[in-house]
Amino acid sequence: MKRISFNNIVNSIKDSVIEINCVASKELLNKYDTGIMRENNELSKKVLINLKQNAIIAKEKMIPICQDTGTAVLFLEIGTEVVIDGGFIYDAIYEGVKLGYQEGYLRKSIVDNPLSRNNTGNNLPPIIHTKLVEGDTLSIVLLAKGAGSENMSAIKMMAPSEGINGIEKFVLETVKNAGSNPCPPITVGVGIGSNFEGVALLAKKALVKEFFEIPEDPNITKIEKDLKEKLNLLNIGPQGFGGKTSVFDVAILMEPCHIASLPVAVNINCHVIRHKKLVF
């Protein structure tokens, strides 16, 4: 048995929520740099330079990189030999998210009811996905997910006969239709397989694929690379003003599915990649 204190989880979530929203990762800064080098179009180059400058200002002042500090989405993997001392794990996460959004001066963007729409005032509730695993480790992958890009995401229950060509067509259409709305350069998470609700979750998880120990499949890697190239030929460009940098990355996750189904989901993330893995 491993004992993890309730307060340790609260504080780690609180600090991480603030950090991912205000401090751009080195990887993100490198992605801006690569884009700046690639773009010939003056406007697109300037946009990327300004996006990088924005990230630098945000870190200096510890203010959010983007005002839409998102919905907190968490993937929990709880070892069956883990015990939380001092309270219930979901309460710790709620408390950490609430404190992080308050103390970090992050925007509270959640409404209590999708129709009457009153702001909950504390960015609660977060969206939590939980998986039980063997062992004594608790891992939490945390994302701050903005709505501008989330709104441009799509799901399709395809016929198995449509195959990889149909999937590519759907991804290309979804990104093309999204155009400038999701704040390109975007990251595209693609889920293939599972079922209706499962495939949407796969697409979300694909956005943070690097945090999960998923064995590399050369076929998938090739599809990701091909799709990235095709998407970057759409000439959407940074902020939709044209250019070669429409997407930073494409990440695919697959799961088994029913003989009659080919579920496909496309989850889009804006250029501000905000995520982190915590391991207890």
């Binding site: 946009v47 300004n50 996006l51 400058q53 924005n54 990230a55 200002i57 945000a58 002042k61 203010i63 959010p64 990189i65 983007c66 005002q67 839409d68 903005g146 501008g148 400038s180 704040c183 902020q239 939709g240 804006c270 250029h271 501000v272």
Partner: peptide, 13 residues
Amino acid sequence: CAALGGAGALMAS
């Protein structure tokens, strides 16, 4: 007109 999306810190300045 468009302002820069995802550049809230820069616009604030």
